[in-house]
């Protein structure tokens, strides 16, 4: 059932203090697909992403309106547990932020929080997640060294592996390649393409070509509004909206 709706944003708005970052977004994320979200800086891409795992809750000035449904359940209803939500909806940030721990401890951070203690199980999770993030071969001999010693590209794949180790249902990625070189970028993209059969992926990117390469569906945001959403091929070849056309053809942004 590849066409099942995993996450459904319904008339969703976000305010930071008096500033409205998102204006009534209605957007479905289909299961086992990569949804690419493109748009210029300040268009609300990150605000939307951080709403889907309620990371915006950490900002006391943030206020939301509307609904986001995960498997049909409103994640913003008061009795919905944000901590459990974040275990189901993992996130990779724009800048790789390895915790100042060993590679191993970084990856098992989430699983340990979920109460997994058995060494064999943790070892298996570490190997599987690193394999899936295409990092295993490079680091398998130094799992106990500090994660801070990795290169930027390796750190970002470590962050991806760390999310995978939680065995989430959805992975949110916030411009995960913005600070990476082309080779590291292609490794991450490769990993994402391989992962979508198991997970639902939302990829925010500044790089329209990246969306064209990996996304099944692409959404274009501008100044907090959803301008257009559709199959990636159509968005890049026959956009319906003039603004989308201008953006994907590189006329602004």
């Amino acid at each position: 059932m590849t066409d099942a709706v995993k996450i459904s944003n319904r008339n969703f708005s976000v305010f930071y203090g008096a500033i409205q970052a998102l204006r009534g977004i209605t957007l479905d994320v289909l299961a086992h697909q990569i949804l690419g979200i493109i748009g210029p800086a300040g268009s609300g891409k990150t605000a939307l992403l951080r709403s889907m795992n309620r990371l915006n809750d950490l900002n006391p000035n943030c206020r939301v309106e509307g609904q986001i449904l995960l498997d049909g359940e409103d994640i913003y209803q008061p009795e919905f547990d944000a901590v459990r939500l974040r275990k189901r909806v993992g996130m990779v940030f724009a800048l790789p932020v390895p915790l100042p721990l060993s590679l191993f401890d970084n990856i098992v951070y989430g699983p340990r929080l979920s109460g997994i203690r058995a060494r064999a199980r943790l070892n298996e999770l570490v190997e599987r997640s690193l394999q899936a993030a295409f990092l295993w071969d490079e680091v398998k001999d130094r799992l106990q060294t500090s994660a801070l010693r990795l290169s930027g590209g390796q750190q970002q794949r470590l962050c991806l592996a760390r999310v995978l180790a939680m065995e989430p249902e959805v992975i949110l990625l916030d411009e995960p390649c913005s600070g990476l070189d082309p080779i590291s970028t292609s490794r991450i993209e490769e990993a994402l393409m391989a992962l979508k059969s198991k997970y639902t992926i939302v990829l925010v990117t500044n790089n329209t070509k990246q969306a064209a390469r990996v996304a099944d569906t692409t959404a274009f945001l501008l100044q907090g509004e959803l301008v257009e959403v559709g199959p990636t091929d159509r968005i890049f070849t026959a956009p319906k909206d003039q603004r989308t056309n201008d953006y994907v053809s590189g006329r602004f942004g």
């Binding site: 795992n53 990371l55 950490l58 901590v83 459990r84 974040r86 275990k87 993992g90 996130m91 940030f93 800048l95 932020v97 915790l99 100042p100 951070y109 989430g110 929080l113 979920s114 962050c159 760390r162 999310v163 939680m166």
Partner: peptide
């Protein structure tokens, strides 16, 4: 960033 990462990995 450490706090955000920790929370996003399901920590209270």
């Amino acid at each position: 960033g450490y706090r955000e990462v920790s929370c996003s990995l399901g920590a209270t």
